[in-house]
């Protein structure tokens, strides 16, 4: 039996559609779900879709890190926050608020989308997987400034969280 129809190109296109749908459906679920936990599940679905996109771009390290950090840690912490703030169930938002929310979401989408449509990046051929060693080398040589800036941002966020935690404790 030959599997001629199963070319890499067709497989990649099918997977792209699959991941795209996961992102889209997850995003709609995250915004439209009445229950916050279901919204979080939508977010997780979106994160899986994005991770799949990274896989298509031959960046398995980024894809797996996405799952490890966002699904395994960040979403779970969001769930924790939902649990701790339970009981403040708000009614459906008013119509005006909904329209404003749609506008706020559409503005950056239109701006970025317009830019992308006008200056579409040329496809640079089949992506090549970069080895983990090369990735590490680049992070500590060519991109060391960005790398250090990110660690600074994370450090400030962490210190801020600790300060907030202490304030809450002192006020009790």
């Amino acid at each position: 039996m030959t599997l001629d129809f199963l070319t890499a190109d067709a497989a990649a296109k099918a997977l792209f559609v699959l991941y795209f749908l996961a992102i889209l459906v997850g995003g709609i679920m995250a915004v439209a779900a009445k229950s916050l936990v279901k919204a979080m599940l939508g977010l997780i679905k979106t994160l899986f879709g994005v991770s799949g996109m990274y896989l298509l771009m031959q960046a398995p390290f980024v894809a797996l890190m996405q799952l490890l950090i966002y699904v395994g840690a960040v979403s779970v912490l969001i769930f924790f926050a939902i649990m701790l703030t339970r009981g403040e169930e708000e009614g459906r938002p008013a119509m005006g608020k909904k329209i404003l929310a749609v506008l706020a979401a559409a503005a950056p989408a239109a701006r970025v989308g317009g830019l992308l449509l006008r200056h579409a990046p040329m496809p640079a051929g089949t992506p090549v997987e970069i080895s983990l060693q090369a990735l590490g080398q680049l992070l500590l040589t060519d991109y060391v400034l960005a790398f250090e800036a990110i660690s600074l941002v994370l450090f400030v966020a962490m210190a801020g969280a600790v300060v907030l935690g202490f304030e809450r404790r002192l006020s009790k």
Binding site: V37, P60, L64, M65, V71, V76, F79
Partner: peptide, 26 residues
């Protein structure tokens, strides 16, 4: 045969706690 085997295991092992959250909440 995957170069990032260890990372694959660690990444998908995190799904279990999501399942526990869903079970506990649901």
């Amino acid at each position: 045969d995957v170069n990032l085997g260890l990372l694959l295991i660690l990444a998908f092992a995190g799904l279990n706690v999501v399942a526990l959250c869903m079970a506990g909440w649901g």
